[in-house]
Design a protein around this nucleic acid. Sequence first.
DNA 1: ATAGTTGAACCCTGCTGGAT
DNA 2: ATCCAGCAGGGTTCAACTAT
Length: 238
Amino acid sequence: LCEAKELVGVSDRALAVLNALLTFYPKNEIAEANGFVVFPSNEQLSLRTHGMAGTTLRRNLAMLVEAGLIIRRDSPNGKRFARRNGEGGLGEAFGFSLAPLVVRAREIEAQAAEVLAGKLEWKRLRERLTLCRRDIAKLIEIALEEEIAGEWIEMQKHFNLLSASLPRRPSTAEMENLLADLEAFRELIVKTLELKTKTEKTDANDIQNGRHIHNSNPHPLSELEPSFETKQGVKPED
DNA sequence: ATAGTTGAACCCTGCTGGAT
DNA sequence: ATCCAGCAGGGTTCAACTAT
């Protein structure tokens, strides 16, 4: 129930009240043979919830009833008590029935497993998001450090905007959306970097691959002055 | 700043038991 | 038999507090 509380629709305080209710159950195992009804007064419940105020107690009891975890077994005057049967044991009891806990045990276990799986998925997404953000920050940093041509300041601003759009406790869907945006952005950065570095390399090759001019009788200035073709960026094969 | 939660105060209901 | 105070439980309101 602690894991599945959100799916079941109860708060942690309501679970504390349920815990207090369970301490009034006479046996360790909830079973029909032991009866399902507990009948503590609000005062006793308040004591066992470490002094929870009566109003809050009632609200949380109502929440447990609303969530279908307990059932009210009201007496005519609303008081909780049990009639003694002839043999000195308990007869009819008025209070709260814990039967739904037994009936819904499997369902609650499945809900808890669902919540755990969701949390795991959330954690995985968060990790991917962190890695992606780290990648982007590093790539932009390198581009700026290496003074690679490109609108890196604008990209950094865009990255900051994307990062800031994530709330403190994002939902899985919010993270999936942002992750898609960031991954696309990272791809764009990588492509831009590849293109720019390739262009720079190619430019350098043009210079390096320039026609080898061999002059067996060189003019004294020809070694200092590049050839016209090289100056114009004309490739050797041209 | 805002929404949600909490707790005190007050009121209502139904039952019980003592006084008349 | 009737009345009434007391008790226990529930509901509502509102100010204070807390988390986001």
